[in-house]
Simulated assay, not measured.
Amino acid sequence: MLTILTLVSWLFRLMDVYSFILVIYALMSWIPSLYGTWIGQLIIKISRPYLSLFENLPLRIAGLDFTIWVAIIALQLIQRFIAIVLNGILF
């Protein structure tokens, strides 16, 4: 049981780090020259596969793109769902 909790704890940390990477990706749009740097390219390679899941949704309103925010909220909902399921199973 302790190993399961440890694995879930690491998974939650990775999900939090990934959410932070998505926020950095969103902030990079304010300074487009950052896309050309090596760290910018790394962030793009990490974040684009997940963000592509939300591209077909109508999330552009009045010139603003809410795709990243919806992706972050979805990631947090998945994290909460895992916590609820494990809480119901283990405790």
Results as ranks from 00 to 15, higher is better:
residue 41 Q to G: 11
residue 60 R to D: 06
residue 49 P to T: 10
residue 82 I to C: 01
residue 36 G to F: 02
residue 8 V to H: 13
residue 89 I to Q: 02
residue 35 Y to C: 00
residue 37 T to G: 10
residue 73 I to W: 05
residue 63 G to A: 11
residue 75 L to M: 08
residue 4 I to V: 15
residue 39 I to E: 01
residue 53 L to V: 13
residue 88 G to S: 13
residue 9 S to W: 11
residue 20 F to V: 12
residue 19 S to V: 14
residue 16 D to G: 09
residue 23 V to M: 14
residue 45 K to S: 14
residue 49 P to V: 12
residue 46 I to Q: 04
residue 79 Q to V: 00
residue 49 P to D: 06
residue 44 I to S: 07
residue 47 S to K: 02
residue 38 W to S: 15
residue 58 P to W: 09
residue 5 L to Y: 12
residue 49 P to I: 09
residue 85 V to F: 06
residue 81 F to C: 11
residue 47 S to A: 15
residue 46 I to R: 06
residue 11 L to R: 05
residue 75 L to I: 04
residue 28 M to Q: 13
residue 64 L to K: 15
residue 22 L to W: 04
residue 76 Q to F: 09
residue 74 A to F: 14
residue 59 L to D: 06
residue 34 L to V: 09
residue 30 W to M: 12
residue 30 W to P: 12
residue 29 S to C: 09
residue 65 D to Q: 03
residue 78 I to C: 06
residue 22 L to S: 03
residue 28 M to T: 03
residue 32 P to G: 11
residue 2 L to E: 10
residue 35 Y to M: 02
residue 60 R to V: 15
residue 79 Q to S: 05
residue 32 P to M: 12
residue 71 A to D: 05
residue 79 Q to D: 00
residue 31 I to G: 02
residue 6 T to Q: 03
residue 47 S to E: 00
residue 33 S to Q: 14
residue 18 Y to V: 05
residue 83 A to D: 00
residue 3 T to A: 07
residue 4 I to S: 02
residue 11 L to W: 10
residue 75 L to N: 14
residue 48 R to N: 14
residue 60 R to T: 15
residue 29 S to H: 14
residue 84 I to S: 08
residue 13 R to M: 05
residue 38 W to E: 12
residue 63 G to D: 07
residue 25 Y to E: 07
residue 47 S to Q: 01
residue 54 F to Y: 12
residue 5 L to Q: 13
residue 51 L to A: 07
residue 79 Q to T: 04
residue 43 I to G: 01
residue 58 P to C: 10
residue 28 M to A: 02
residue 79 Q to L: 01
residue 36 G to T: 10
residue 20 F to R: 06
residue 60 R to W: 04
residue 27 L to W: 11
residue 28 M to Y: 04
residue 23 V to Q: 03
residue 4 I to K: 00
residue 53 L to W: 14
residue 90 L to V: 15
residue 17 V to K: 05
residue 91 F to D: 01
residue 66 F to E: 03
residue 87 N to M: 07
residue 18 Y to S: 09
residue 38 W to V: 13
residue 78 I to P: 02
residue 84 I to R: 06
residue 27 L to I: 15
residue 6 T to D: 00
residue 5 L to M: 12
residue 71 A to R: 07
residue 71 A to S: 10
residue 49 P to N: 08
residue 5 L to P: 04
residue 8 V to M: 07
